[in-house]
Design a protein around this nucleic acid. Structure first.
Length: 478
RNA sequence: GGUGGCGUAGCCAAGUGGUAAGGCGGAAGUCUGCAAAACUUCUAUACGUCGGUUCGAUUCCGACCGCCACCUCCA
């Protein structure tokens, strides 16, 4: 069985067949850079990141493009409030995007195009639409005639005639049809503008994605992703603009990520109920935040609440404890010892199979993670046996590598945190000394001293564990 | 008014036409000088309500209730 993806265009789960065998082109609608991004935004970036990772895991060569919307009303307003230029403001938040996403373990896209770097391409598309009679000018604004595109509404399942009743938008009398949308906005005072055949102005929102996707990925792309809110009108309009010009299917698979909720409502900038990723990262590891975000299927709304992230902290800790314990056997995984009849090897293989089955079925990360934790439990149970023979060690090494492989796809594993700015070798030696001295106290049954050492180390972020085979320590962070 | 989604244990969250993955939390135990970590056992006669189809439904159909979102910018 191959990969199947829920396609918003067909409203069903479709078998995934890329345009070109072995290759995937993918476009994700990125942030409008007028502020830091919050956990809700992170959900869609993360989903795209995981889809990309999983496609690569399956052996596809992926070209992934995610744009920055760096010119729009919110950016202009915020820039004017702060007395800086729109480009200064957007540069600042583009930089912040890279900082935060890197900390979250989101890999940079292959291309991060900016709208303002594509003005000529945008103008060219608009000119072609004007020439074809699809677009028209009113007072320097250019609008798209939606009735010229017969398929308008196919993505969001809307009929053009239904779009008005109940709509909350005020009607612009200058438009031929109230649903026509702007491709280009005429210049206004205190706004950045670019010259164009109709005077000066700036691009509308939707046209930038058509221009950038076509430029960097071609006229037909495999996967187009984004938040649920973009399905209409943004993605619908992208389709209308692109397909009316190219005559080709703009994107074959449309992937929409459901909202992150908080207190039962959508987490959103306008609701003032968001949590910035950079703030969440102060209290939680990137792995824990990712664990939380992939704990639900991407098409289900996920509720954020005060305990969700700390639940994920605990879950990640247990995963890491397991990985630490079997990490030392990793190198044995390539050895010649036959492990074909080992229960751990079988369990690891089963986990991989089930992980892939789960991910193949529309990226079911929640199910996939369940499979990971089944193996974690199995391995932990196995480790309680008294003696491990070589076959067992090799099998554990295989289990380790299997776990690492899939955890990398979900991004819930990274190298252990080392002591910041620490001289690892020196710290190791000092810890050996401290533990040695403490164990002398324990031999003398000087529990007061032994506990004092343990408590004081705990205060600086080091955790001690007395086991039958000696005392271990681990850096837990401040 | 139109369109779509959601309602599963204390919490989070998968899932299937034949009687419920996983995580967190909780309880008891093993281990330990005590901890920590780990492990063991237990923790939903039941999946919003009411009908229908079926040998059998949480899973299909219908109605209803509750909640959310999109139709204006929002990932």
């Amino acid at each position: 069985m191959g990969l199947r993806i829920y396609n918003s265009l067909t409203n069903q789960i479709d078998e995934f067949i890329p345009i070109e065998d072995g290759k995937v082109s993918m476009y994700n609608c990125g942030p409008t850079v007028y502020d830091y991004f919050h956990i809700g935004n992170a959900r869609t970036f993360l989903v795209a990141d995981i889809i990309r990772r999983y496609l690569e895991y399956k052996g596809y060569q992926v070209k992934f493009v995610q744009n920055f919307t760096d010119i729009d009303d919110k950016i202009i307003n915020r820039a004017n409030e702060e007395g800086v230029s729109a480009s200064q403001l957007s540069s600042r938040y583009i930089e912040a995007y890279f900082e935060d996403s890197e900390k979250l373990g989101i890999r940079p896209a292959d291309v991060h195009p900016k709208a303002t770097d594509h003005i000529p391409e945008i103008i060219q598309l608009i000119e072609r639409m004007v020439d074809k009679g699809i677009a028209y000018e009113v007072d320097g604004d250019i609008y798209y005639r939606i009735h010229k595109f017969l398929d308008y509404g196919k993505l969001s399942n809307r009929k053009p005639e239904d779009l008005l009743s109940g709509a909350r938008v005020g009607i612009d009398k200058r438009k031929e049809n109230p649903r026509d949308f702007d491709l280009w906005k005429n210049v206004k005072p205190n706004e950045p503008s670019w010259s164009c055949p109709w005077g000066c102005g700036r691009p509308g929102w939707h046209i930038e994605c058509s221009a950038m996707a076509i430029k960097h990925l071609g006229e037909s792309i495999d996967i187009h992703a984004g938040g649920q809110d973009l399905q209409f009108p943004h993605h619908e309009n992208e389709i209308a603009q692109s397909e009316v010009l190219t005559g080709k299917t703009f994107a074959r698979y449309w992937v929409h990520t459901a909202f992150l909720r908080i207190g039962g409502n959508r987490m959103g900038k306008s609701e003032q109920n968001f949590i910035f990723v950079r703030d969440a990262l102060k209290d939680h590891s990137a792995e824990a935040i990712r664990h939380f975000l992939v704990s639900a299927h991407y098409r289900s709304p996920l509720d954020y609440n005060a305990t969700s992230l700390s639940d994920s902290d605990s879950a990640i800790r247990r995963l890491n404890n397991c990985l630490e314990r079997i990490g030392p056997y990793s190198e044995l995984a390539d050895s010649e010892v036959s492990t074909s009849d080992s229960e751990i090897t079988r369990a690891a293989a089963e986990m991989l199979t089930n992980f892939e089955l789960a991910m193949d079925e529309d990226f079911n990360t929640a199910l996939a993670m369940g499979e990971i934790y089944k193996l974690v439990g199995h391995v932990n149970r196995f480790l309680t046996q008294e003696k491990l023979i070589q076959v067992d060690r090799v099998a554990l090494g295989i289990a380790y590598q299997s776990l690492i492989k899939v955890c990398m796809v979900l991004g819930i594993y990274s190298e252990l945190e080392s002591i910041p700015n620490g001289n690892t070798q020196l710290v190791d030696q000092l810890m050996e000394l401290v533990i040695d001295i403490r164990n002398d106290s324990r031999l003398r049954k000087d529990w007061v001293m032994a506990d004092k050492v343990r408590d004081r180390l705990h205060e600086v972020g080091i955790e001690l564990r007395d086991t039958p085979s000696g005392t271990n320590w681990e850096w837990r962070g401040d």
